[in-house]
Design a protein around this nucleic acid. Structure first.
Lengths: 249, 249
DNA sequence: CGGGACTTTGAGCTTTCTCAACGATGGTGG
DNA sequence: CCACCATCGTTGAGAAAGCTCAAAGTCCCG
């Protein structure tokens, strides 16, 4: 009892700790993201260079321009990744959930800022330490390339959205792609959480909060979506959303 | 003589040929792109699985949705990479010049179309064949990750441009980034070619040709740039272009 | 239960788009 | 070699999508 209390206090003062095998086994990101390519046995090698970190909502843990010391793997919660202009304009380049890998950088510096949307748990890997693990398990390095390639495909899709789609098309497109994180391919009434604010949505879709709100209201009026509350949306007519997204409606 | 003539004829009928060591040595992409990480000796291994290809302006050589059989390395000319919507709207996600590497794909399918802007020469690598070379030279695999990471950084910058910048800021930003391909960091009167059409520019910047033209005209009126002709621009006041690009003017 | 933050809705405005005409340029055939 | 035509680029005027400013409504959290 007393020991446990002591450890808890220690954990609060210094929450940087490697995950135990049990924590890895039970981790919600165990079979997505980086860890999925390793067996339980091999995972302990990776776990050894990992540090578990907890972040409160709003905490910035990667800052644009800072030296890129760490990679991150999200175990819990959601993260917004963005770039800013001097006058405060902001473009969110992605929302990252459980299992997402984060921290690729060119030229040794992060090119983006990353901020916790809600309470976040993640595993942090120092670049130097993880390099040796990569050499030991080439599958990890290959997975890294897969992740980067996948991000690139998504980024290209987002450029199409930002450059060429109407407000309604952007909102429909976002709902569909966000839903994929929760219910791959599942059809009809799919209910998904929207942990981010309307402001986040606006900064992701290249719109204003008002236009996002109006577009969501229109989809609601047309009975394509339904809101239990502002942060939980149900997709009622996925097919018609897809038509709108593709510019065919 | 007769043999040479015969080979030339064969080359015309079947222009798919591995490059000779001399061709590699003299290639304008020798010290950029993939090949740069290999010594002349090692390069012959890569050259062995390469096929030199020539494309006329306008030729599409990667089509969105097709099985991703090849990687490409551009030796000469410029390429536009884009995605399209059903109704013909198009978003160019990048212009690729000499030394650029092309062909990363997730899920075995290309997510974009690639088309020659002018006459293009490139080296083509079959995925199966190159995989063995990658195993032999891990530096190549690492370079691939560097390329993907760099592309990702550029894509994020482009999302900021498309989502949050004004027309004038987009055009200024494009001129600066395009100039980097020709004169890294060089200052003041830098003259650069614009091989792409105004339509290409519009589809890259998420604008219309008219708005691109008006923005260029404004920069010209303000004496920040100068046109020898429509496809050769001189940057006169790089610093002021940078201010515009950053949203500080 | 109250207050601050977030979201929705409305009205007028700005930027960019659309439609149209004019101008330049480059390739071709007489 | 020049004239012609097709294509591309520039400029102008009016229209529209989305933005700004404003106010009312809603939801948490203390």
């Amino acid at each position: 009892m007393q020991n446990a209390a002591k450890m808890d206090r220690a954990a609060v003062k210094n929450p940087v700790r490697s995950p135990t095998p049990e924590q890895c086994r039970d981790c919600s990101a165990r079979h997505i993201g980086m860890c999925d390519v390793l067996s339980d046995a091999d995972l302990s090698v990776l776990a050894h260079v990992a540090q578990r970190i907890s972040l409160a909502a709003g905490k910035i843990f990667i800052e644009e321009g800072d030296p890129a010391r760490y990679f991150y793997d999200i175990n819990q919660g959601d993260v917004r990744v963005y770039k800013s202009l001097a006058d405060g304009r902001r473009q969110i380049t992605g929302f990252m959930g459980v299992g997402h890998f984060l921290g690729l950088a060119a030229g040794g510096k992060y090119a983006f800022t990353a901020e916790a949307i809600n309470d976040v748990h993640l595993c942090r890997f120092e670049r130097g330490a993880i390099k040796e693990v990569f050499d030991e398990f080439p599958a990890l390095q290959r997975r890294l390339l897969d992740v980067a390639t996948h991000e690139l495909v998504i980024a290209q899709e987002q450029m199409l959205l930002l450059g060429r789609k109407s407000a309604l098309e952007r909102v429909a497109g976002f709902l569909l792609s966000w839903a994929e994180n929760y219910a791959q391919g599942k059809s009809e009434p799919v209910t998904i959480p929207l942990p981010m604010s309307r402001m986040d949505l606006a900064d992701y879709l290249g719109l204003t909060i008002e236009t996002v709100s109006r577009s969501l209201s229109q989809l609601k009026r047309d009975k394509l979506i339904f809101f239990a509350d502002a942060h939980a949306v149900t997709l009622l007519k996925k097919h018609r959303l897809q038509l709108i997204d593709a510019g065919e409606a």
